[in-house]
Design a protein around this nucleic acid. Structure first.
Length: 111
DNA sequence: CATGTGACTCCCG
DNA sequence: TCGGGAGCCACAT
């Protein structure tokens, strides 16, 4: 029996979206990654905006660390009140925000 | 196949 | 440091 479906298999890596999820899952607690950085890790450099759209589609009960994704300026890109919720999660992981900004020099995850 | 869209990024002033 | 504008990529219609 072909457990491995041939076509329309969900494990195809043809979708950048799928790779973004996989890359996001690699980000450890206590660290953050930028949209552009995550796009690069996913193999689609330059597709920072795609990362944002992809994250937006995630269910709120997702197990993925969506809150570890911030913009290149170290700021939260989400609109309120979601932004506050993300900040709370980051602080809970030991990440300190100064004036609403994360120090990328310290917390940016680099594999 | 063309057009619109966005949790972005970079460049200037 | 801050704000505005153009550029970009993959996805949705």
């Amino acid at each position: 029996m072909d457990t491995y479906s041939d076509k329309s298999s969900e494990s195809t890596q043809h979708d950048a979206t799928n790779r973004i999820w996989l890359a996001l899952a690699q980000v450890p607690s206590g660290y953050v990654v930028t949209y552009g950085g995550l796009a690069t890790l996913a193999g689609t450099p330059g597709a920072a905006r795609l990362v944002g759209q992809t994250l937006r589609k995630l269910p709120k009960n997702t197990n993925l660390p969506w809150h570890r994704v911030i913009n290149a300026q170290g700021r939260i890109s989400l609109p309120q009140p979601a932004a506050q919720r993300q900040i709370t999660r980051l602080e809970r992981e030991g990440i300190t925000l100064l004036n609403g900004r994360v120090d990328l020099k310290k917390y940016l995850w680099q594999p």
